[in-house]
Amino acid sequence: MNNEALHYHFDVDGASFANAGRASVETKKLLRQIGVSPDVIRRISVAMYEGEINMVIHAHGGDADVYITEDTILIQLKDVGPGIRNVEEAMKEGFSTAPENIRALGFGAGMGLPNMKRYSDDMHIDTKVGVGTTIELWYRLK
């Protein structure tokens, strides 16, 4: 990203499921203020929200960074959690390693990563077991 990018940082609190999604709600408000089109905002909101939920469920939280330039928006979600053992498997709809108590909360249906891919123009996953995961969600504005 170049220096002209707008940058917003959010700490994703891993201690509380109730707080999961705060960064996504804030980001949505920011994007609205900036005047990003509603369609792009919706896609970013859903993908980032799923990502944030994942960070809380699996990785004790982490960092969410939003970079905005004239042409692109990048959402970077970084954690130092357990990493994803098999990315290909994790990308399958319905595949989930979330514990039963998370399902009772409305998540863990195995739609997180597939939703993030569906609702982004490009998604990059950089993950290492025992080290952590960084996911980049890219959106083209032009």
Binding site: F17, A18, A20, G21, V46, Y49, E50, I53, E93, R103, L105, G106, F107, G108, A109, G110, M111, G112, P114, N115, R118
Partner: peptide, 23 residues
């Protein structure tokens, strides 16, 4: 299942649910 709502729903106005948390 909120993940299903996020996955499949388009331009809906109302969500009916038995889940009662902040998410």
């Amino acid at each position: 299942m909120m993940s299903d709502v996020l996955a499949y729903v388009k331009d809906q106005g109302v969500l009916l649910t038995g889940l009662i948390n902040v998410q």
